Simulated scan of single mutants.
Amino acid sequence: MPVFGLAALWNGSALPERVAAWVEGLGTLLSTAQSLQLVVSLRAEEAGLELKVEAPGYPRAAVEKLAEEAKRSRGTFVELWRMPKAERDAFRTATFGGGTPYPGEERAAAARALQQHVSKLAASGERPSVPPANPMDAPRPVQAPRPGPEAPPARAAASLPEGGAATAAASMPEPSAPQPRAIAPSHRVPTAPRDSPQRRGRRFAVKLELEFRTELDFVREHALNISNGGLFVRTAHRPQPDSVVTVDVKLPNGNRLQGDAVVVHVVDDPYTGGVGLAFLNDDATFSQTLDEYLASLVGGTG
């Protein structure tokens, strides 16, 4: 079952009662989730909640609602799973390192802890200083998340896959779902060096054999480009956006990338059409295999 990482952050300007209501309402909004795991972080200038949602598909409508309610509580909301793993790990360490874990059924206790801390922040008048524009701000979709480094503000996102040819990219629909808000002003997520394979938005043209499975189908195809966030597959088989597929990518060095991916966009064209898949794997082996392969492409050896 795939796991989607989400987070919310609040400082002294947040509304404590709304913060608590947001946390207590997670179970109702995320009704398709098989399990919820929470981590509460109470820091000098802010409070944060990391949320791991185990669900059969991406609960887009629920996530949109969570983002709206987080804004109403005067907090910020982040889809962690969209961030490149190196940046996601750095953000988790800086923000939630040493935090307190809560099982999903203990949401009320987590809500009380956050409400009390936010109330103290409000009483102290603490406000974090606002840094320069966050490099993790990224696209607000209109129909399906469109990958790319250029994007409107208000979303932390991973490097998402794009069509392998210029015509495919040109024909991609603009995304439709509202995206999560940028990372809270008290945090600036570190980005990778310019020439690093972890740099967001860096894609490589490839022709990699892969298999992907849905609940109903098994397909053998080729990936036309790949990045640290996902890949684009030219195929006539086009699962619905937000559905989850299992991928098995054969790399030239003999290694394989195996795990879950979510369909982030569909290009509906008879010649250049296909699907963009964003990797969901959060394990070290998958990330190391992908990073080593991307590094070989940077060096021209892949």
Rank of each mutant, 00 (worst) to 15 (best):
V3L: 11
L9N: 06
W10D: 03
A20S: 12
Q37Y: 02
V40H: 05
V40R: 03
V40E: 03
R43I: 02
A55W: 01
P56F: 03
A62W: 09
V63S: 01
A67H: 10
K71M: 06
R72M: 07
R74T: 01
T76G: 08
T76M: 04
V78W: 09
M83C: 07
A86C: 09
R92S: 13
T95Q: 11
G104V: 04
R107G: 01
A113W: 04
L114F: 08
L121I: 01
G125Y: 01
R127M: 09
S129H: 07
D137L: 12
A144V: 06
P153F: 07
A154P: 03
A157D: 09
S159L: 02
E162P: 01
A165F: 13
A166H: 07
Q179D: 04
A182D: 05
P190W: 11
S196K: 10
Q198V: 02
R202E: 12
A205G: 11
V206Y: 06
V206P: 03
L210Y: 09
F212R: 09
F218E: 14
E221G: 04
L224A: 13
I226N: 08
S227P: 07
N228H: 13
N228P: 00
R234T: 01
S243K: 07
V247P: 06
V247I: 15
L251F: 04
P252V: 03
V262W: 02
V264A: 01
D269W: 05
T272L: 05
G274S: 06
V275F: 02
L277Q: 04
A278E: 13
D282K: 11
T285W: 10
S287A: 15
T289N: 12
Y293E: 12
V298I: 14
G300V: 04
